[in-house]
Design a protein around this nucleic acid. Sequence first.
DNA 1: GATATAAATGTTATATAATAACATAGAAAT
DNA 2: ATTTCTATGTTATTATATAACATTTATATC
Lengths: 264, 264
Amino acid sequence: MQDRQLLVGNYIDEKGEMSLRELEALFPDVSSMTLRRDLDALEAEGRIIKIKGGAKSIRHLSRSILFQNVEDDYGHRELENTAAKEAIAEAAAGLAETGCSIFMDAGSTLMCLARRLSEERRFVVTSGINVAMEMARNKHTIVNLIGGQLSRDNLCVAGAGALNHLQNINIDIAFIGASCFSAEAGFTCGDYNECEMKRYVVSKAKKKYVLMDSTKLGRSMPYTFARPEDMDCLITDNTTPMLEEIAQRAGMRLILAQTGGCDH
Amino acid sequence: MQDRQLLVGNYIDEKGEMSLRELEALFPDVSSMTLRRDLDALEAEGRIIKIKGGAKSIRHLSRSILFQNVEDDYGHRELENTAAKEAIAEAAAGLAETGCSIFMDAGSTLMCLARRLSEERRFVVTSGINVAMEMARNKHTIVNLIGGQLSRDNLCVAGAGALNHLQNINIDIAFIGASCFSAEAGFTCGDYNECEMKRYVVSKAKKKYVLMDSTKLGRSMPYTFARPEDMDCLITDNTTPMLEEIAQRAGMRLILAQTGGCDH
DNA sequence: GATATAAATGTTATATAATAACATAGAAAT
DNA sequence: ATTTCTATGTTATTATATAACATTTATATC
């Protein structure tokens, strides 16, 4: 039956990867050979790829590919601190009201957020082409991509055209990523165009949230795009007394995202 | 040795997929167990994924994912007429001089072209976010992405912002895709914004090439973005006497791309 | 409604591949 | 020179995939 085949596909998409054993447990009234044949069919459709003892979801793989930021010379990148980023994204997702216009920055933390938001009807402006691609999965989401020069590093577009483009767009909520934060320099990033773009968004948006994991605390990059007093809220995974003081003085709310495991 | 492991990775990237047998033949002086362990390491790095009897390249998979145009309701799409598209792209690649500014449209044929162009130093403006992603693979290519609303169907951005954006960009060579061509309607496409964008590019570019496989001949879509006399050249995989006459009268060059297999 | 045909599923035997555990050789460190 | 570690090889075992055939279920045709 086609029914079961679709179900199998959905299960695999959901979990990312499933063993034949798990499938057998889920479908006890068909033989494992039938399930194998289902996997064959799904693979032929390009929906999954079979691995030893099970299968992986292509859709899921595509997510990790989009994450993988056109990999660096050794192929490893952005695998760092995933737990923190996921937690931060989870916390941010709670702040993304529906029915309003949302700006989403580029970067891996924002990509984590995109995954969580891609199920609902929304209007999204973004500077990240992987974010755009992820959000476009949902038929009911309108995705607007900023134009400009593409940065290989973080798949972010920025530049002269970007500012023009943003001029005519209203932003209710802006989710912005930061490369670093320090007391002296504020929120910084390493690219001039990107910095200008972020600064413009900050000046324009009604609510401004910055997403940054705690490893970026106390460091700085060349370009400052905002000071604490410019932002409504910082969502991060760890705090210091210093940071709390700065936040309090600037009237910037601090949200501490709980990472999955215990964190002592 | 790390050396061999890198080599194995490169081979797999190149061929997209390799069996253990093939690897054994390529590396006769190590045992198959060693090669297995290499595959384990490469998989841990996220470079390949192991399948029964061999491995697949993630980089290669990512290409098919980018192709797969945010799949339609049944997951199959754009697998049609791949041979023709590849041949057309191959012919077009020969026309893409280096050291000039190139516009690349969105769509699967253009994505085929992107794969071929992504090895050289270039300046590229594009409306396709998958095209942009593919081109960004090369460190020496500057990629400029048009902004605007993203179409789920073909991962194309277009709209008001796009025209503004294009205003300040000079285009030496434009590679444009077409959904349909007919004698009465000329080159057409199905989206208004996209049509305007294409038309603007055509008006602006010094050389204008249109890429279209022959299945799209004789049909038409709502919006006309160019007539034969507007274009310098049509690259396709098959011709008709009718088409040849039209081309001749309009002064549009016809390039016939040879598909791999014999085509009688 | 009966029969023929095709499609889907089940069963088994066989071939193939993956793993684990241990053995060996080569390189780096002391 | 000796130790230690890492990379590689060997083998036996286990698990998995495949192929071929048997059976059931659905579909079409008369």
